[in-house]
Design a protein around this nucleic acid. Structure first.
Length: 463
RNA sequence: GGCUGCGUGGCAGAGUGGUUAUGCAGCGGACUGCAACUCCGUAAACGCCGGUUCGAUUCCGACCGCAGCCUCCA
């Protein structure tokens, strides 16, 4: 029985889909004006695992993740670059896909773009105005009238009075109330604009998600996900829009993943303390990054550091070492495994507790290594199959052990050199010329090569 | 200031009212020519102070510390 932590109720709830066997999942994606950083990687990986696990649990999942391809920052960045907006956004969509693929995330089923949802956005704003939830102001902007929506604040756990007393609400003359938020922005000169009943302009940020999720799933869907920082105001506003326009509950389960931190501080663009995915995967195998993300429960903060990445790398190296040169049993179904499989299920059913699930995998690895020592071929291939079966759910072990340990993009010449040095060392060993053998090994160590002598065979990996 | 969450062994990170988390690192041993790999064993923790309880790291309260949101942010 899967339990999901629902931000709306602040507790874990039994997951029951609206339509039996089907899950409609919407996740807020990227604003495409820059490279993805590790925080974005976390959202992508977390909801990739959610999708994989729901599917493994027998649900037919439809996964929609939007792309914000028009907003203030995009316009600003395009101007800075002297670049066309569309060329900027297309460029970073390509880069995002590159990073997402490297991290081993499955593509969402739908990736709607804001600029391609203008008709739906405008229709929804018209509905909100018609129902008295929105008004056009003198400056041509259209605002949402927060006071008209009873449930405002129910997701982020605050009320209108509290918000009003907050010191940091910016004053904007055009609004009836400082808490009102923009649905449609009147065009300024030189800015991209779309025609609308309120004149040329472009949508506010929040409305696109309400429009696109409704287009994907209709008025009511199962899970809405995103980073914790979107809870307020973005998701709060989404609820106000969707429920205002449709007159019914929009989302059953809200899921928010925790932040990635650096030195106990949130990683964010505004603080400038972020690492992009591409700089990290230049140093570490992308799967190491993925493993690192899965070492903590998705709602907990995740502290980023080289030390943590090194730990993840060492752990993953041990898995791949166990899987190396093993003939694995195909089609092992982890759900059929009474011991490890059921423990894995308990872990994942408890709000996708990947940290606990990894500890089950560690036990499988131990069982695999022991079987290896006992030369029990059947057990070895079973546990190897089981391990990769778990790996399917977590998106791990998606490459060959050799590729991970040796590096698939390894330099051919260097690989040949390593092989010949190993051969020379083994000749020396056969002659019991230990000085020579050790000298060769030292040379390899200097090259960053680690040797492992096993059962008359020497394996190697890059350190 | 308001609201929310957190504080576990060297590091990371689960979990529980009374019994081993797990991983990385460490230590001892087996294996090895020596190592590495692997296995076996081992030590080490629940911020502080009260309360509830036969018993609390786990429940309750105060305190201290940290983080996040209240403004764009995954």
């Amino acid at each position: 029985m899967l339990k999901v932590h629902n931000s709306l109720t602040k507790q874990k709830e039994l997951f029951t889909p609206i339509e039996a066997g089907k899950v409609k999942l919407y996740v807020c994606g990227m604003t495409v004006y820059d490279y993805c950083h590790v925080g974005h990687a976390r959202v992508m990986v977390v909801f990739d695992v959610v999708t994989r696990y729901l599917r493994a649990s027998g649900y037919d999942v439809t996964y929609t993740r939007n792309i914000t391809d028009i907003d203030d920052k995009i316009i600003a960045r395009a101007n800075e670059n002297g670049e066309d907006i569309q060329s900027l956004t297309e460029r970073f969509i390509t880069e995002m896909n590159h990073d997402a693929d490297a991290l081993g995330t499955l593509r969402p089923d739908h990736e709607p773009k804001a600029t391609e949802a203008m008709a739906e956005i405008i229709t929804m704003i018209e509905t909100l105005i018609a129902k008295g939830f929105a008004y056009k102001s003198d400056n041509g902007d259209v605002y949402y009238d927060v006071s008209q929506f009873d449930g405002y604040g129910k997701l982020s756990g605050r009320n209108i009075d509290e918000l009003r007393s907050g010191e940091r609400v910016a004053v904007n003359e055009a609004k009836d109330d400082p808490l009102d938020f923009v649905l449609w922005k009147a065009a300024k000169p030189e800015e991209p604009a779309w025609e609308s009943p309120w004149g040329n302009g472009r949508p506010g940020w929040h409305i696109e998600c309400s429009a696109m999720s409704a287009t994907s799933f209709g008025k009511h869907f199962d899970i809405h996900g995103g980073g914790q920082d979107l809870q307020f105001p973005h998701h709060e506003n989404e609820i106000a829009q969707s429920e205002g326009a449709h007159g019914c509950q929009s989302v059953n389960y809200w899921m928010h993943n925790g932040f990635v931190r650096i030195d106990d501080e949130k990683m964010s663009k505004s603080l400038g303390n972020f690492f992009t995915v591409r700089e990290v995967i230049a140093k570490y195998d992308p799967e190491v990054v993925r493993y690192f993300i899965l070492t903590s429960q998705y709602r907990s903060p995740l502290n980023y550091s080289d030390e943590q990445l090194d730990q993840a790398k060492n752990a993953l190296t041990r898995y791949y070492t166990a899987l190396r040169d093993v003939e694995l049993e195909e089609n092992v179904v982890w759900q059929d495994d009474m011991e490890f499989g059921s423990r894995f299920k308990v872990a994942m059913d408890d709000d996708f507790n990947t940290a606990l699930a990894l500890s089950v995998m560690a036990d499988v690895r131990l069982a695999l290594n022991k079987a290896q020592e006992n030369q029990d071929k059947e057990q070895v291939s079973y546990f190897a199959g089981l391990l990769t079966s778990f790996g399917q759910v977590l998106g791990l072990f998606q490459q060959s052990a050799t590729d991970f340990l040796v590096g698939d993009a390894g330099d051919e010449d260097e690989n040949a050199k390593v092989e010949s040095l190993i051969e020379a060392r083994n000749t020396a060993r056969a002659d019991k010329d230990w000085a020579k053998a050790d000298q060769v090994r030292d040379e390899l160590t200097t090259m960053g090569i680690v040797l492992e002598d096993n059962a008359g065979k020497t394996s190697w990996r890059r350190s």
